[in-house]
Design a protein around this nucleic acid. Sequence first.
DNA 1: TGGTACATCTTTGATTTTAACCATACATCA
DNA 2: TGATGTATGGTTAAAATCAAAGATGTACCA
Lengths: 228, 228
Amino acid sequence: MVKIKDVPMFSNLDKKFHKELYDNIYIRHFTKNSIVFYEGDSSDYLHILLDGQVRLYKTSPKDTMIQLHRLNAPSIIGEYACLEQVPFPATCEFISERGTVGLLHFKKVMNYLKDPTFSLALLKSMTNKVMMLSSLVHKETILSSEAKVADLILNETETFNKIKNNEIASILNITPETLSRILSKLKKEKIIVIINNIVQIHNLEALHIIIEKNTLKSCGYCISKVKR
Amino acid sequence: MVKIKDVPMFSNLDKKFHKELYDNIYIRHFTKNSIVFYEGDSSDYLHILLDGQVRLYKTSPKDTMIQLHRLNAPSIIGEYACLEQVPFPATCEFISERGTVGLLHFKKVMNYLKDPTFSLALLKSMTNKVMMLSSLVHKETILSSEAKVADLILNETETFNKIKNNEIASILNITPETLSRILSKLKKEKIIVIINNIVQIHNLEALHIIIEKNTLKSCGYCISKVKR
DNA sequence: TGGTACATCTTTGATTTTAACCATACATCA
DNA sequence: TGATGTATGGTTAAAATCAAAGATGTACCA
């Protein structure tokens, strides 16, 4: 487990705060699939992920899950909800077997803000959050399902190989059926080959084109184009 | 036009910086529909909106515009692209008749970061940006077109009354046709009445239900339900 | 060790839904 | 009298939903 003083945000904090931090942070332990907080909850505490992996998601009126991010320790969760004292915009759930969260009262946080290294670290964390949200917005507003899949294969091959299709679909916010169909197409077009759950990219350019044009049809290589 | 020293981020900055700021900020003037920067552009400058109103949008592969935000002076634009030295994730265009932007080299910004009031103000601005993005994500991933319209009528009646349907549609990222049809339905169901381009809400609860359930059909009041 | 039983994943087909797209008519305004 | 904005009808497209069949994996037990 990550020590509090090793969380980037606190590591550079003036030494005099370290003892105080230890005394003021509540530690909570979680098991897989337990909920840290629900969308809409309010909290007076800054949540610091010290161990494990969580996912943040919204629930649609149809009760489907819209996954926003996955975060690994160490990181800060829901910082803006804490700073602005507004409800959490998403539910936070552990997906690792076990995990740990440190809770720090927001008044303490406000105090530490006077320390320049702390506010800079928090700024850094916020910047990072903006980047994640910005890329999420791009994914959800610009990319088609086909483009999402192509993007994941191209830019997060690791993830793609490691987890099962079910999970991939949920990360991309598409249904498993849709994912299955898209993968079939990509295989049929010889753009990728999957052996033992490991992708091999056989046509890099095609993947780039799919991402750019948002559709498999637009890539000149494809059989489906010929058929038309 | 807003004076630089009146921009929240700079107003509390140590006085010794003010003179330097004046000497180091480039001022650029713009007219309506002119572009401050394009999605994908890189820049070494922090952009400070001093006068006018801009919209930030992405362009889809089909060449349609996905509007992310509208910002009024004074505000900071593209702060994270500047801080992280990454390309702008969206295009910035003036929608007011004229406008002004101040440009501050990011190295200067990095310098000012040592000033706690500055980094706090920047943090505040980032927090705000996260809130905007978070609500955008909600709008685009959770709400249906009907819910988007209901939400705007309910929570931004001002905006709804002030601008024409065309513009509303583009803010909601739906087509004018879709908006027109949804408004017709709402009127037919007697949920709203529009006189002289001013909405009157005649059934508040119905609007809430539409937002929550994402569909007009689900609201018990509706004629369309009876027909089924 | 193998074998049955159950659960979870994945694939495939058919259908439905939402909202875009296209075309055209009507309205408002300057 | 254009021009721009709004309304309406018909069509299409993308992806969800529903249904059901194959596949793979895992646990338990004799």
